[in-house]
């Protein structure tokens, strides 16, 4: 099981939710996981119904079975000052750099420095050991940028190592790439059974593979349970359906009766449903062709709250993802 699990996915597929559920699922008895956020959206805090996370690792949940989940929202600017402090013990000089706009420059303008800092901080947490030589966290889960940007985001250290050919940034970038390209890391993509997210997943995996980044699994989120047989049986007569609805207590089955009036709209919904199920089957087949483990997570009809998050975590454990 990879120690660093990166969760990406197209916008709207629920990657933050899946990352959080995965962090919970991995925190089995006696284990510690760190859930890392890099886009400054405070999505983790919202999910766990806590106040905004500072740039500091803090415990946010106890997983079923007693493991612990810590969370960290990485702030690029503070991470940069961290590094300066670490490498140069720049106290006041760091502040002066900030005044000059150098920190702004480094974190928002300079190519990739921001991404280097974010991945760098996460990799530092992956490698960190306590005094007894044990890993500080058994797993680190990152709620990463979306599929369209993930390869570039993870690979930026290669680019920076090429730009900054010597010096600590160069060394740091190379150290990060060693972690990211090793089996210690797995990049998972979250998708829905819809055309555009699946297409992006297929493209994203091709990009990750081309960059020699380790692809983990495909997590299909919000999978709807089947309520009707599909295809919907065609040999049932309209009048029989009307009669059945009438038997169920929904009014008269005669022409113009309440139950009879329901038949058309209900059959229309069924045909939309059929169309959707057929489309979902095609998407599922396309995902299967990727040759990766595929995990499906059910749609929680009431949306995601804390209880829903634990349910997804339990499902991930059952399916052996953790």
């Amino acid at each position: 099981m990879s120690r660093f699990q990166v969760v990406s996915g197209k916008g709207g597929t629920g990657k933050t939710t899946v990352a959080a559920a995965l962090a919970l699922a991995l925190a089995t008895e006696g284990k510690r996981t760190l859930l890392v956020e890099v886009e400054g959206r405070q999505g983790i805090a919202q999910l766990f119904e806590t106040e905004a996370l500072p740039y500091e690792e803090r415990k946010i949940a106890v997983a079923p079975g007693g493991g612990e989940v810590f969370a960290l929202a990485i702030d690029a600017e503070l991470a940069l000052l961290d590094y300066l402090q670490m490498f140069y013990r720049l106290g006041s000089a760091g502040r002066a750099l900030k005044k000059l706009g150098a920190v702004d420059f480094a974190t928002t303008i300079a190519p990739g420095v921001r991404d280097v800092l974010l991945t760098g901080k996460a990799c530092e947490a992956v490698r960190r050991k306590d005094k007894r030589g044990r890993f500080a966290y058994d797993h680190v889960v990152m709620d990463a940028p979306p599929t369209g940007r993930i390869t570039r985001f993870l690979n930026v250290n290669d680019e920076v190592a090429g730009l900054a050919k010597i010096g600590p940034i160069h060394n740091q970038a190379q150290a990060v790439m060693r972690v990211l390209k090793s089996p210690q890391t797995a990049v998972h993509l979250v998708t829905l059974l819809e055309e555009m997210p699946v297409q992006e997943t297929v493209d994203g995996i091709a990009e990750l593979r081309a960059a020699a980044l380790p692809v983990g699994r495909v997590l299909v989120n919000m999978v709807r349970a089947e309520v009707l047989p599909s295809p919907v049986p065609q040999d049932v007569r309209r009048t029989d359906v009307a009669k059945a609805l009438s038997r169920a207590g929904l009014g008269g089955a005669r022409r113009g009766g309440l139950a009879e009036q329901l038949v058309d709209p209900l059959l229309e919904q069924a045909s939309q449903y059929e169309e959707r199920v057929a489309l979902e089957r095609r998407q599922r087949a396309e995902l299967t062709e990727l040759g990766l483990p595929v995990t499906e997570l059910e749609l929680l009809p009431e949306g995601i709250d804390l209880a829903g998050l634990y349910r997804l975590a339990a499902e991930l454990r059952t399916q052996g993802v953790s």
Partner: peptide
Amino acid sequence: LAAGLLRLH
């Protein structure tokens, strides 16, 4: 079928 249609609805 009707039960299914109702659940879907």
